[in-house]
Amino acid sequence: MPILEVKNLTKTFKSTPIIKGISFDVAEGEILGILGPNGAGKTTTLQMLLGILTPTSGSISIFGKDVATNKSNILESVNFSSTYVDMPWRLSVKENLTWSSYLYMIPDRKKRLKQIMELFRLEKIWNLPVAALSAGQKTRVNLARSMVNYPRLLLLDEPTASLDPEVASYMREFFARQREAYNKSIILTSHNMSEVEELCDRVLILKDGLVFDVDTPANLAKKIEDCYLSLRLTKNASKLDELIRRRKLVITVNEGITRIEIKEKMLPLFLYELTKLNIQYSEISIDKPNLEDYFMKVAKDKSL
């Protein structure tokens, strides 16, 4: 049974539709990534899930309860973190986590805060005011705050933006472990495609307020048919030109490397033809399409 169900959700601002009837769900223990170009409606969707933006129509149910009528109850087991939302900057990290913790029913508050401090490596900044922290440290504290109530569902809006690579990687591992150990569900938006590929079970692509696609990162990447074959040619380069012309392929040459854009399913035959024509090369690499390629195609292609 899904932990979250969104049905026909719409949001219109001053007669401009921003979200145009989207439906999706998230299973217990699933990590769902929401991707989309700027203005696609990602943050608007997250806000509606949190009950801080009223939908124009449609329904959101979390843990089987309607968000519109059970918001407070539902949010006991939900939390979120966004790089775009600040904490009271005069308060120390400890004070911010302490007051936030009282907004939830937490059995052993002191123990939990100590645990959070250690998990998020906050010891050195524990007593510093938020105003004195770097952007990365603030993000870390925000993430720590989002874990304080043992959330069953976590909404993360660009969780690792402004973190240095080492801490970002630690955080990704942390969330993956949380999901495995406690079966937590996570919805995240990110512009870091490798992060989404690494963490998410499924990716929902939003475009112009509509669900453009939902699938696993691997399946989405497979929807790009073209891949890139790069060769450093050593013999019979002219025969390759002829072959390229015949097959109507696109090539680019840069620093002695010939890069050929070719449909993935055509690749075995193409390699066979190279051998047959005695076209020799000293280096070869094949770049298979990934989620980023798919995302770029979706973002750029106005006809989609």
């Binding site: 801080i52 949010l75 775009y84 939302v85 907004l103």
Partner: peptide, 18 residues
């Protein structure tokens, strides 16, 4: 006003607080 200046209203109301 302080909550507005601190951009903290979202942090406040995306919790069980009524």
């Amino acid at each position: 006003l302080e909550d507005l200046w601190n951009r903290n209203l979202v942090n406040l109301f995306a919790t069980p607080v009524k």
